[in-house]
């Protein structure tokens, strides 16, 4: 069974479409990294899972339950580290964890939970005095209460120092080994590649790539970045390049075209550019890194079509 299943989900806020026709499936037991730049729709997607917002169309199923109708049942089995949350300033860290334990009717030891997320020494201090990183740790601790079947972590590394981010990854691994499904979002690839079974890249509310980290690595291994200096960027030249087999992304940067493609496609790319009536004055190639691939999917103006990374 799938832990998370979104089917043709669209969410509009007034004129703004935050998520469009999103299909997403996360099998039970998987660690899924949900990547994308800020504003891509990651938090909206997560808010849909938790019934914080409701889809304009499409269906959202979590742990086999309807995300809207059975939201309480979903959240009983889900640990959540939400985005843009705050703690209760007047309550202590321990009171927060006790509240989570009571809310979930769990039997965790508050001190053990606080110990695990590394803020045991601040247990009796008011959470209002906590730093951003400590608040993040506290919310993670509350999420871990009750051994949830699913962990939903929205930008969990926010406010954490490198050490904290590493501890966060350790906890994600431990929870995964326990059997939990982990779904977490990030705008930084480096935070997810070490722990994820699979990553999906969201851009403008659409899933533009989805693959295992291995698959992405393989794609990177065989791919290169081709920088072609041209006399002008004619209309349609980018589309012509994208038509070439083996090309996963093509963008214009001033008088240069930047093309991500498999090695064997280089000649075809140059041919397609010439065929579009554009003169090539120079070109260079470099090996693409995983980061480049992520950047190609998220930072450029022209988005590649969904599924191309998997095919590459």
């Amino acid at each position: 069974m799938s832990a998370i299943e979104l089917s043709r989900v669209t969410k509009r806020f007034g004129d703004v479409t935050a998520v469009r026709h999103l299909d997403l499936e996360v099998p039970e037991g998987e660690v899924y990294g949900f990547l994308g730049p800020n504003g891509a729709g990651k938090s909206t997607t997560i808010n849909l899972l938790l019934d914080f917002v409701r889809p304009t169309s499409g269906s959202v199923t979590v742990l086999g339950l309807d995300a809207r109708e059975d939201s309480v049942a979903v959240r009983r089995r889900t640990g959540v580290l939400p985005e843009g949350f705050d703690v209760y300033g007047r309550l202590t860290g321990r009171q927060h964890v006790e509240f989570a334990i009571e809310s979930k009717a769990a039997d965790d030891e508050p001190d053990a939970v606080l110990e695990r997320v590394g803020i045991a020494d601040a247990a009796d201090r008011r959470a209002g005095g906590y730093s951003k990183g400590m608040r993040q740790r506290l919310a993670l601790g509350m999420a871990l209460v009750g051994k949830p079947d699913l962990l939903v972590l929205d930008e969990p590394s926010t406010g954490l120092d490198p050490n904290g981010a590493r501890e966060m990854r350790t906890i994600v691994r431990e929870e995964h080994e326990r059997g939990a499904t982990v779904f977490f979002s990030s705008h930084i690839l480096g935070q997810v590649e070490a722990v994820c079974d699979r990553v999906g890249i969201l851009r403008d509310g659409q899933l533009v790539a989805e693959d295992t980290v291995e698959g992405l690595r393989d794609a990177v291994g065989t791919e290169a970045r081709l920088r072609v200096t041209v006399d002008r960027v004619a209309d349609g030249v980018l589309d012509a390049v994208r038509e070439v087999e083996g090309v996963s992304a093509a963008t214009a940067d001033g008088d240069r075209l930047v093309v991500t493609c498999v090695d064997a496609a280089k000649t075809g790319v140059l041919g397609a550019i010439e065929a579009a009536g554009v003169t090539v004055s120079d070109f260079e190639t470099e090996e693409a890194s995983l980061e480049d691939l992520f950047m190609a999917y998220t930072a450029d103006e022209a988005a590649p079509e969904p599924g191309e990374a998997a095919e590459a």
């Binding site: 938790l50 939201s71 309480v72 949350f85 705050d86 703690v87 809310s103 509350m142």
Partner: peptide
């Protein structure tokens, strides 16, 4: 306004 509602509704409360 503050965002504590998200923490509250992350827990199984209707």
């Amino acid at each position: 306004d503050s965002g504590t509602l998200k923490l509250l509704l992350s827990l199984p409360h209707s």
